[in-house]
Lab assay of single mutants.
Amino acid sequence: KITVTFNGEEKARRYYKKMQKHNLKVEIRVENNQWVVHVE
């Protein structure tokens, strides 16, 4: 499981979509004013 933190929504969403293309289970959320993407 990987957790990647971004300081911008745009970058986070781009990464999220990229990971989805690989058929990975991805989850995006905001934690402590940071955009966090969890990849299983």
Rank of each mutant, 00 (worst) to 15 (best):
K11L: 14
Y16K: 04
K1F: 13
Y15S: 01
G8R: 14
K11P: 15
K25A: 07
I2Q: 06
E10T: 09
K1I: 12
F6Q: 01
N23D: 06
E31N: 06
T5E: 04
E9G: 04
T5H: 10
F6R: 01
Y15F: 15
K1W: 15
T5F: 13
E40D: 09
I28H: 00
V4D: 01
R13Q: 07
Y16E: 03
T5A: 09
N32E: 06
Q34G: 05
M19T: 02
Q20R: 12
V39Q: 02
L24D: 03
V39T: 03
Y16H: 03
W35S: 00
Y15D: 00
K11A: 15
K21T: 08
V4I: 12
R29F: 12
K1R: 13
Q20S: 08
I28T: 01
V26Q: 01
E40Q: 11
Y16W: 06
V26M: 03
H22A: 13
T3E: 06
A12Q: 02
R14T: 07
N23T: 04
V37A: 01
G8V: 15
R13W: 13
E10I: 09
I2S: 06
E31Q: 08
V4K: 10
I28V: 04
E31V: 12
R13D: 02
E27Q: 08
E10D: 11
K18Y: 15
E31S: 07
N23I: 05
A12P: 02
T5Y: 15
G8I: 14
H22G: 06
Y15V: 02
V37N: 00
L24N: 05
T3A: 07
R13Y: 11
E40L: 13
N7Q: 11
T3Y: 07
G8N: 15
V30K: 14
W35D: 00
Q20E: 06
H22T: 08
T3G: 03
L24F: 13
K17I: 12
V37Q: 00
Q34A: 07
N7T: 12
N32A: 07
W35T: 01
V30N: 11
V37D: 00
Q34N: 07
V36I: 12
N32H: 08
A12H: 04
V4P: 01
N32F: 06
K1H: 12
Q20D: 03
E40S: 13
F6P: 01
V39M: 05
A12M: 03
Y16R: 03
V30S: 07
H22F: 11
Y15I: 02
V36D: 01
M19H: 03
N33M: 07
K1Y: 14
R13C: 13
H22P: 04
I2W: 15
V26A: 07
V37R: 00
A12S: 02
Q34W: 07
V39Y: 05
H38F: 11
E27P: 00
